[in-house]
Design a protein around this nucleic acid. Structure first.
Lengths: 210, 210
DNA sequence: TCCAGAACCGAGCGATCGATCGGTCGGTGT
DNA sequence: ACACCGACCGATCGATCGCTCGGTTCTGGA
């Protein structure tokens, strides 16, 4: 199927950071994602993943050396895509903190809608990851948080944001965006665009945007 | 130890809704709580729980009929205490939506700080609960959400809150409060009172409180 | 003093877990 | 023609899972 060697880790969509195609993950990873999202990492057997991938158990182990490797590949791909999209959103945004804030928050919101399962699995199964992989994941997560915090601080300095508690507001905004993965349903009453508009407005008021 | 028959489910603290004593859970439940918080429900063996409780496996099964019963008792106790404290906070609060909003949000914030592990386990292990128990849990959760939503709606009607999206703001506020359990650490730099003050201010601005 | 019942335990049940062994099979290069 | 390799699988490994059987020990009331 693939004409090149490495296409595993990256689900890289080269289009706009706003556009989300279907998931585009190797079949075993997609199977693991579905199973982990439904039953959790420890609640999912390697046999279940193999069956969903249309493989035997040894067939699955031919592609991935362990159950843990499935989880690590999954979470790594998730965080890389999230950071990549956030950076692209920032690079297209205007120079003011307000514009940059809107860009990152919108990117975060959209990601947690359209990559809901991946984001959910990654954040809930952090504790199932071995220390080394978990630290790498946390580092990427912190990087995302830092992006938000720095923009908010810049906005407070420039006077565009009036919050007396920039750090706490930053955490609240990130929590709200990540929380989208907990409740968003594609068949909900509001369109993604409407949800982005509303939650972005709430995020703005949380930092005291004028 | 206990002078009466039933003291299991309820950890009821009769004092102020603001005051939190130590956890006060039967030893097996406390053991299950610690283990579930660390490794998750499926990642925890019944032997691990028994060992932490200072019991043999049959000794543990003498008190609780199944692993699932441990989880159900735990989550039921959590939600009952949360709702009880929220209702007491409301009953002590003034009549205006602003006062009532502050009371529920402060109660939610404090609960997720001082009952961090219980709240965390309850919300993350929802999917490990059998349908019947999960529905009961979700019902209590929805009741808590409804408390917030109704207050916000009343505040919008009275003109005290200016948010154009009351439902979305309500979800954002609840998400922020519940998210406290994800990051709060007792040895953090800010005191619980400071964190309540800051996050309450953020919650107020999320609903457009004047 | 006796005993009923609560509280507990060592041993082990069948089932399932993650992982592996020793292969088969089809396609590719020479 | 033949060696080779990636892709895959049936069978099974030892370990561990949730749970139970058949007991023993502890304790308070009659």
């Amino acid at each position: 199927m693939s004409m090149d060697t490495r296409e595993d880790q990256v689900s890289g969509d080269a289009g706009s950071w706003r556009h989300y195609g279907p998931v585009s993950l190797p079949k075993p990873l997609a199977a693991a994602l579905d199973a982990f999202a439904e039953r959790g990492y420890d609640g999912t057997s390697i046999r279940e993943v193999a069956a969903r991938a249309g493989l035997s158990v040894p067939g699955l182990y031919h592609h991935y050396p362990s159950k843990q490797a499935l989880l690590v590949s999954l979470t790594t791909a998730v965080m890389n895509e999230l950071l990549d999209r956030s950076r692209r959103a920032l690079s297209e945004a205007g120079p003011t903190p307000s514009e940059r804030f809107d860009a990152v928050v919108e990117s975060l919101l959209r990601f947690h809608m359209f990559r809901r399962d991946q984001a959910f699995v990654a954040s809930t199964e952090m504790r199932s990851m071995e220390p080394e992989s978990r630290e790498a994941y946390v580092a990427l997560r912190d990087e995302q948080q830092r992006m938000i915090d720095e923009i908010i601080e810049a906005g407070v300095e420039s006077g565009e944001f009036t919050t007396p508690f920039p750090r706490d507001a930053g955490r609240a905004v990130a929590t709200m965006c990540i929380g989208v993965a907990d409740w968003y349903r594609p068949d909900g009453m509001l369109t993604p665009d409407e949800l982005v508009e509303r939650n972005l407005a709430i995020a703005r008021s949380a930092v005291g945007a004028l």
